[in-house]
Structure formats: structure tokens, C-alpha cells
């Protein structure tokens, strides 16, 4: 056996490597944010939020139609996906707690949680776009909903399982029907956790691009028709950044900055929301 000092030296070296790994790991976030700020901030102005995406070769324009489309599709996607996710999570944690199907559903849900989002795009193309014979905001929203569901199912189940059984028993002892116990007692006890899950779902789909590519396509112009292609931030960024037009490129960076700031602040607020409840 090597001497203690040799072992100590070896340990120090490995730990120094771990420290280095951490420093390198932490630096990426700041490098990316730095690039986004440098390139995106100069283009940020009121016009970004009030003007439409411009034709190439111009010097003005904004991202209004793209921001609008993203907000609408995120609202619809989460609006469809979150209730389904909460209900399904409720089943797993409450009614189906001892059902044999529950572990299967949980397992499948966990896999869907990490499934490649481009596959979801293919699925919705085949299931919605082809039958409707048109790319549409509806198809995009459904694609986003399919991504939302597993996120919300997972957090809902986890959060409901954290609620102590004594609470449920106490409520049941008052003679409340089970659904009332769940809705009036368990949901309230787990409210912070449920909202955290939904915030995380919003953050997850807010920047999704792959499932939108061939479900909503995009639109140069203002369109609020849900049955037609609609402009949206991620696909607009994708189109603008792949273009040599300088104005488009600036807009793409600005859009990227907006999306990233929005998504990261949602992530952080979700964390604080969850943490504040945990601490009690």
C-alpha cells in the first residue's frame, strides 16, 4: 500500500480535477448568456414588440407576429396538456395507487418525458396535419400539448405523493367524497408543487422548435387563424438565423435573447416556488 502522503496527493489531484470540471461546467451558461446579450441586446427596442417580421433587405421590423404566435400556441399547448397531465397524475397518485397498470403508465410516461421531440413532430404531422391537409397552429399546439403531458404527470404524481395521508384521512373522516378530498384538500396542500410543474412545462415548450417545424411551419405575416400556418419565435429564429440578411440576423439574436430569458426565468421561478413550499 502506498504511503499516506502519496494517497493524499492522489486524492488532491483528483479533487482538483473535479474542481476544474466544475469551473468548466459552470462557464458555458455564462458564455452562452454573454453571446446572447452582446448580439441580442442592441436590437431590443419597442419595435421588437410592436412591429411585424420584415421582408429581407429592410432595416426595420420586429417580432410581434412571432411572439404572438408563440404565446398563443404555448397557451393552447399548456391549456390542453396541463389539465390532462394533472388528471393523469392524480390517477397515478390517488385512485390508481394500487392498480397494476399504474407502474406501466408511470414507466411509459417517464419514457415519453425524454422522447425526442422531433418524433412528436412526426407523430402530429401524421395524426393531425395530414388529415387536416394543412399546416396549422392547432397542429403545433397539439404537438406542444403532447410534450407538456408527461412533464405535468410526473410532477403532479410526485407532489401528490408528498401530501401526508393523515390529511386525506382527516378529510375523508368528515364524510367528504373522495374527489372532494382530492380537489379541496390534496390539491391545495400540493398547490405550489403543481404550479411548479406547470411552469416547468411552459418553460419546456416555450423554446421547442423541432416539433413545430412541420406542424405549424411559420408565417412571414400576421396570421391569427388557428387553422393556418402561424408565425412563432423558434421557427422564425431558425429561418432568420440561416439567412445572410443582417437585419434578420439581428432580429434572430434578439428573439433568441427573449426566449432564453423567458425560459430561464420560468425555470428559476419554478424552482423558488417549489423551494419555498418545501421549506415550510
Amino acid at each position: 500500500m502506498p504511503s499516506y502522503s502519496a494517497r493524499q496527493r492522489k486524492s488532491t489531484i483528483v479533487m482538483a480535477l473535479c474542481l476544474m470540471a466544475t469551473l468548466i461546467g459552470v462557464v458555458w451558461l455564462f458564455l452562452i448568456l454573454f453571446s446572447l446579450l452582446i448580439n441580442g441586446l442592441p436590437g431590443l427596442s419597442l419595435a421588437t414588440f410592436t412591429e411585424m417580421t420584415p421582408p429581407p433587405g429592410s432595416h426595420a421590423g420586429g417580432l410581434l407576429n412571432a411572439i404572438y404566435g408563440s404565446v398563443v400556441m404555448t397557451i393552447f399547448g399548456v391549456g390542453i396538456g396541463a389539465p390532462i397531465g394533472v388528471l393523469a397524475g392524480t390517477y397515478l397518485a390517488e385512485y390508481g395507487r394500487h392498480s397494476k397498470v399504474t407502474p406501466v403508465i408511470r414507466f411509459i410516461n417517464d419514457i415519453l418525458l425524454s422522447a425526442p421531440s422531433i418524433i412528436i413532430g412526426l407523430f402530429i404531422y401524421g395524426a393531425v396535419v395530414v388529415p387536416m391537409r394543412s399546416f396549422s397552429a392547432v397542429a403545433g399546439s397539439i404537438a406542444l400539448a403532447v410534450i407538456v403531458i408527461p412533464v405535468v404527470v410526473r410532477t403532479t404524481e410526485d407532489m401528490l405523493l408528498l401530501v401526508p395521508n393523515t390529511l386525506r384521512e382527516a378529510a375523508s373522516a368528515l364524510g367528504l367524497p373522495r374527489s372532494y378530498v382530492i380537489r379541496k384538500v390534496t390539491y391545495r396542500a400540493a398547490r405550489a408543487g403543481l404550479i411548479t410543474g406547470i411552469l416547468l412545462a411552459v418553460a419546456r415548450v416555450g423554446g421547442e422548435t423541432a416539433p413545430l417545424l412541420f406542424t405549424v411551419l411559420s408565417n412571414q405575416f400576421w396570421s391569427a387563424n388557428l387553422l393556418k400556418p402561424m408565425a412563432n419565435l423558434p421557427v422564425t429564429i431558425n429561418n432568420f438565423i440561416n439567412n445572410p440578411d443582417a437585419n434578420w440576423k439581428h432580429l434572430a439574436w434578439t428573439g433568441a435573447l427573449l426566449i432564453t430569458v423567458a425560459v430561464l426565468s420560468l425555470n428559476i421561478s419554478a424552482r423558488f416556488f417549489g423551494a419555498s413550499k418545501d421549506g415550510q
Binding site: 461546467g25 459552470v26 458555458w28 451558461l29 455564462f30 452562452i32 453571446s35 446572447l36 418553460a203 416555450g206 423554446g207 421547442e208 422548435t209 423541432a210 423558434p234 429564429i237 431558425n238 438565423i241 434572430a252 439574436w253 433568441a256 426566449i259 432564453t260 425560459v263 430561464l264 420560468l266 425555470n267 428559476i268
Partner: peptide, 16 residues
Amino acid sequence: AIELLAGIPSIIYGMW
């Protein structure tokens, strides 16, 4: 700082 990396949308990584 590390976990927020998971929150950055894929397309941002692409353009970066």
C-alpha cells in the same frame, strides 16, 4: 448554473 443549461432551448445551442 449547471442545471439551467438544461433549460436553454435547443435552437439557442444551435445558433451559438
